[in-house]
Design a binder for these strands. Structure first.
Lengths: 335, 335
DNA sequence: TTGTAGGCGTTATCAG
DNA sequence: CTGATAACGCCTACAA
């Protein structure tokens, strides 16, 4: 391997490549960023030098100079839950093909750290930002406005989006579940969910439609803690005395629905005859459990891809948009 | 809101803050990076100016100058699968608390894009790199060596680690499963798994121990495609004629194990009496399926945390280490 | 405790 | 098509 110039710093610089190829640094830069503007023979010499010296361009310097970082930030609650994991993965893949890297920024379950996370993220001068939900503090909004960076808010609907929106209509989803139950002849309903924003909206959409269509809402329960199988069991035990001959139950999360299904069996409540159950998420437990149950499916991969596409478009000067995402009720043995 | 100086660029610079606070830029820098070396009164004035102007330090400029990016790269196959999703999440959280941001780099299922991904990632001059597995091309090794950056390889064991290793002993894991079966009195065995590196190693560890202890290995099957429920069904149908009174089957992935469990039921093969089954991953299907089955559990969160801790230590000048990660066989109804 | 000078490695811009 | 020059915004090193 050739000797590697490392004059003062520790790594090969553009000037080392330029010297080795007998050209000016600017020409090396062009070979990398605008090959069309360089003669083929020159480009070949430069490439040879790059290869031989193992030159890896310093993107901090390039970004500082060009004011383009070629990086976008993905600000999400977490990626351990399958849904956002898949979404961020697809988002990253899609933008990677367009030459952008992704800075991962985690805000925690309820987005509690969003402001702090956003501040440090913006220090990186991302060319675009992906946000989760549409509930952002005034501080966050000011930071983003001052940064003048394209923003995509995903997952949530909003009547006052900051920029571009890639959203699931959670209220409409709840209403669709109610309609689904009505179509099966139900008239008595129950709902439960966490106090997280989206779950609440789904539940409200469900409740509203139930009342609109003249149904009876026996139970509308807000969980104290977060979604869990145990919470589902507890809810069902509480509800049991109120259940009549036939009730339809919408649980705003599959874990809770699964707990309810399990507990119904323990209590001898027939599913779906006496109690019909619909969950949310179409997760593995809804499909592979002991007793598969109906659930609403939302496509994380599609969300990530739409978000990437929309952000790319914005970064290329396109206008803000609003992209609705579909959902689907997957009927199984519980309804 | 105060008028925001934006002389030539579009955003507030350190000199704007300095001017507003009546100090030199260097003093503002110190307030942010070495508060101890600034008088309290001065710091207060500077903070006021920062707040008022909405100053967000440009980390590209800072990194270029200081030669520290305060960023680490996480190079993983993907984050859609629960395991790496959880690992990367914990990794990011842990390093976030230490002031590092995480650049997410995806190499695809078999790590096929690793070289290209690594090259662009290193352009960002990360202070540390997290890699998945220990099978890296000469190109990758050269890139990392030239970059002189601390590296942690996770997930896989290796006899020639580049630097620090946070690893599960997949071969030992396979052997432990064999021992587990022997302890239940088994003497006839079968194994199946994908051709992915780790799955193969687990299977080899299993097979070797079976033979060492004098067992019979009826089947040692390499799946053509990737892990799936369907593949598990197919494998079991193929194996069925070879099964005697009592056989113990190690499937190197839970999806495959689940398929086998389902197909055994269809074929009327009694589990666990005639066929004992152990999967890998301790995923939801192994716990919540129709027929829960024994599986080997590995802790993604622990892996992410150990990797973060080890990388942090390396970045602070600590020596390379080798951190083994535990696994656990979770017995269920299938054995 | 604070300030000054200079450079980090690249690219925009304009000239040839 | 190629090159010279001057930023980009911050921090290291040294000086006061």
């Amino acid at each position: 391997m050739a000797r590697r110039p490392r004059d003062k710093s520790g790594s090969v610089r553009i000037i080392d490549v330029a010297t080795a190829a007998g050209v000016a640094p600017m020409t090396v830069s062009r070979v990398l960023n605008a090959p069309d503007r360089v003669a083929a023979a020159t480009a070949a010499r430069v490439h040879e030098a790059i290869e031989r010296l193992g030159y890896v361009p310093n993107l901090m310097a390039g970004g500082l100079s060009s004011r383009r970082s070629r990086m976008v930030a993905a600000v999400v609650p977490g990626i351990g839950g399958h849904f956002f994991g898949v979404a961020v993965q697809r988002f990253t893949e899609f933008l990677g093909e367009a030459g952008y890297q992704v800075l991962l920024a985690l805000t925690g379950p309820a987005g509690v750290n969003e402001d702090a996370v956003l501040r440090s993220v913006l220090g990186r001068r991302p060319d675009g930002v992906l946000l989760t939900g549409s509930d952002h503090s005034p501080v966050a909004r000011r930071l983003l406005r001052d940064a003048a960076v394209p923003v995509v808010e995903m997952w949530d609907t909003s009547e006052t989006p900051m920029d571009t929106l890639v959203s699931i209509d959670h209220a409409g989803l709840g209403a669709a579940v109610a309609d689904f139950f009505f179509a099966s002849g139900h008239s008595r309903f129950a709902a439960a969910g966490s106090r997280f924003p989206r779950a609440t909206i789904r539940r409200q959409g469900f409740a509203r439609r139930v009342l609109e269509r003249g149904g009876t809402l026996l139970v509308d329960h807000t969980l104290n803690g977060s979604n869990s199988i145990t919470a589902g069991r507890d809810v069902l035990r509480e509800m049991a005395p109120l259940l009549g001959d036939r009730t339809a139950f919408f649980s705003c999360h599959d874990s809770v629905a699964f707990g309810a299904v399990m507990e119904a069996r323990v209590l001898g409540i027939g599913v779906p005859h006496r109690l019909a159950i619909c969950g949310f998420g179409d997760t593995e437990v809804s499909r592979f459990s002991d007793a598969p149950f109906t659930s609403v499916s939302v496509d994380g991969k599609a969300m990530g891809e739409s978000a990437a596409e929309a952000l790319l478009d914005r970064m290329n000067g396109g206008p803000p948009r609003h992209i609705p995402l579909p959902f689907e009720i997957i009927p199984r043995a519980s309804t």
